[in-house]
Design a protein around this nucleic acid. Structure first.
Length: 266
DNA sequence: CATCTTGTTACGTT
DNA sequence: AAACGTAACAAGAT
């Protein structure tokens, strides 16, 4: 499910456990989600540690615990964070559960495309520090975006928007939303985009990201009427602007939905 | 039963 | 060496 706004929603689900110690850790030993993790170290070093803070960069999350313990989480396609009662029994897809006195912090992921990382040390792990700047930050300038796109000139723009090195946190629905607003056909090759269109594209990356954070993150709400989001999932979806029936095809390995009138063939 | 899924990554080819 | 396209991962919904 999660793109940057949904990631923020889930991250805050664990806020109620801030400043409280972990009493016990439960995990599934044979789960894809925990691949590469030292399970013994995670279990023992997280116990008695206090949950201090969290942050998100794109679709990545980092949770900080006392004593230099760091938990990295990625939600994949179906991951979610939730809170249950302290005596909850971990379910089939609850791959990691942190028990506190008054609650259980649960990482659930049915499809197991998500990922857990664990790091010990005074500073954040390297994989975190080398993540690209958020598309909502000052570092994401039009020049920076263009420099990234120049390395992928043969790619359909829809596929380029899904590259996390250049557009961290953008996923399938946000990419379609951005292209619809910028009036760009998803199959347009990056190299075919003109200066004007690149400006539009950059503005819409920002608008859609900020809008998603505002509308979705607080309560997992849907974006308001007028967003492509409300139409793109259904077979009967229509363009919010002119009511033209949307088209859907696979572009860059994912389903793209677009308005053939607002986003004409390149 | 067939097909679909808001994500990455390994691998072979260009 | 990069960039590119596709299969694979796993499980539930339709």
């Amino acid at each position: 499910m999660p793109e940057l706004a949904e990631v923020e929603f889930y991250r805050h689900q664990w806020d109620c456990g801030l400043n409280q110690p972990i009493r016990a850790v439960a995990l599934h030993e044979q789960t894809r989600v925990l691949r590469g993790v030292d399970l013994g170290a995670l279990t023992q070093r997280l116990r008695h540690a206090r949950y201090q803070s969290s942050s998100a960069r794109g679709k990545q999350m980092l949770f900080r615990f006392s004593g230099g313990r760091w938990l990295g989480l990625h939600l994949g396609m179906t991951g979610e964070l939730l809170v249950q009662l302290p005596d909850a029994v971990p379910g089939k897809h609850d791959h990691l559960v942190l028990f506190q006195k008054e609650r259980a912090l649960v990482f659930r992921d049915a499809r197991q495309f998500g990922r857990v990382r664990f790091h010990l040390g005074p500073d954040a792990p390297v994989w975190w520090t080398v993540l690209p700047p958020d598309v909502t930050s000052g570092a994401f300038t039009q020049a920076a975006m263009t420099a990234f796109l120049n390395r992928h000139r043969k790619l359909p723009i829809k596929a380029a928007l899904l590259l996390q090195d250049g557009f961290p946190g953008i996923g399938n629905w946000m990419a379609d939303e951005i292209l619809w607003r910028a009036a760009v056909h998803p199959r347009t090759r990056v190299g075919e985009l003109t200066g004007n269109v690149l400006g539009q594209l950059w503005r819409q990356v920002r608008r859609v990201s900020l809008g998603a954070l505002r509308h979705v993150s607080p309560a997992f709400g849907d974006p308001p009427r007028g967003w492509l989001f409300r139409e793109r999932w259904s077979e009967a979806g229509r363009c919010p602007r002119d009511r033209t029936p949307l088209l859907r095809e696979t572009v860059g390995g994912r389903t793209a939905a677009w308005c053939p009138r607002c986003q004409p063939q390149p």
